[in-house]
Simulated scan of single mutants.
Amino acid sequence: MNIIKTNNTDSRFRKLCSMLDNYLNDAIGKEKQQQEYNQHNALVDIDDVILLIDGEKLISCGGIKKVDEDTAEVKRVFVADEFRHHGYGHKIITEIEHLAKAEGYKALILETGLPMKSAQKLYTSCGFSFIENYGPYAFLDSSVCMKKNIENNI
């Protein structure tokens, strides 16, 4: 398996994000996804990307978006269906943390959907804690926000 640091223009990242969008459309509903969330997931806003790849197989992706000097938002975390339940979710989160810490961030925040129980379980197992909904998610009842301080971690 290769760990690749890239950016939002990488076609492999874009393909994984398309797979993520299809997954979310099925899990949350396409209309709700388009109305409430798509505007907050523009790939152009994601500063740095990590990919997990095995040969030509796209395993997982995730990125970070700068919020302020100390905080980055975790974006577009996804593990392809055939690779779920093999630890790749933890691996991509760990790599995102390494990247964010190397870039000087002290905290990571993220948003996931209320129905996304497996994502919430992954993030809590990686040390994230639930916080009050922030920014564009403050008034979305279907959002769950989380945070992890990384300054002294990893």
Results as ranks from 00 to 15, higher is better:
Asp54Pro: 11
Phe78Gly: 05
Val44Ala: 12
Ile50Trp: 08
Gly127Tyr: 14
Ile154Pro: 02
Tyr88Phe: 13
Val74Tyr: 05
Ser118Gly: 04
Lys15Ile: 13
His40Glu: 08
Ala42Val: 07
Tyr105Asn: 03
Lys15Cys: 05
Val79Gln: 12
Asp54Glu: 15
Lys57Pro: 01
Lys5Thr: 15
His98Ile: 10
Leu52Arg: 04
Asp10His: 14
Ala119Gln: 06
Leu110Cys: 03
Gly104Tyr: 09
Tyr88Trp: 03
Cys145Gly: 07
Leu24Gln: 14
Ala27Asn: 08
Tyr123Met: 01
Asn25Gln: 05
Cys145Met: 07
Asp21Tyr: 10
Asp48Tyr: 15
Ala107His: 04
Glu69Trp: 07
Phe78Trp: 12
Gln39Ala: 12
His40Arg: 04
Glu111Gln: 07
Asn8His: 15
Arg76His: 05
Phe130Asp: 00
Gln39Ser: 15
Lys32Arg: 08
Gln120Gly: 11
Gln34Leu: 06
Thr6Cys: 08
Ala102Thr: 07
Glu56His: 12
Phe78His: 15
Ile64Val: 11
Lys117Asp: 05
Ala27Thr: 10
Asp47Gly: 13
Lys32Asp: 06
Glu103Thr: 01
Arg14Ala: 03
Phe13Gln: 06
Ser142Trp: 10
Ala119Ser: 09
Pro136Ser: 05
Gly135Val: 01
Ala42Arg: 09
Met116Val: 01
Ile154Phe: 09
Ile96His: 08
Leu24Trp: 07
Glu103Ile: 01
Gln35Asn: 11
Arg84Lys: 14
Ile109Thr: 02
His98Gly: 06
Cys17Phe: 12
Met19Leu: 14
Leu51Pro: 06
Val79Arg: 13
Lys57His: 07
Arg84Pro: 10
His90Gly: 02
His85Gln: 10
Thr112Trp: 15
Asn22Lys: 14
Glu73Cys: 01
Asn25Ser: 13
Arg12Thr: 03
Ser118Ile: 00
Lys101Asp: 00
Asp141His: 09
Ile3Pro: 08
Ser142Cys: 12
Gln35Arg: 10
His85Ala: 11
Lys106Arg: 14
Glu31Gly: 11
Asn41Leu: 10
Met116Ala: 13
Lys101Pro: 07
Cys126Asp: 03
Leu140Glu: 04
Asn2Lys: 15
Leu99Glu: 00
Ile96Thr: 07
Ala107Pro: 03
Leu43Met: 13
His86Met: 15
Val74Lys: 03
Asp68Lys: 04
Asp21Val: 07
Cys145His: 11
Thr112Tyr: 14
Phe130Thr: 12
Lys91Tyr: 00
Arg76Val: 01
Gln33His: 12
Arg14Ile: 13
Phe130Ala: 00
Leu51Val: 04
Asn2Val: 00
Ala119Glu: 01
Arg14Met: 11
Lys101Met: 02
Phe83Lys: 08
Phe130Leu: 06
Lys32Thr: 08
Glu151Val: 00
Ser18Trp: 12
Asn153Trp: 09
Asp141Leu: 08
His40Leu: 02
Thr124Tyr: 02
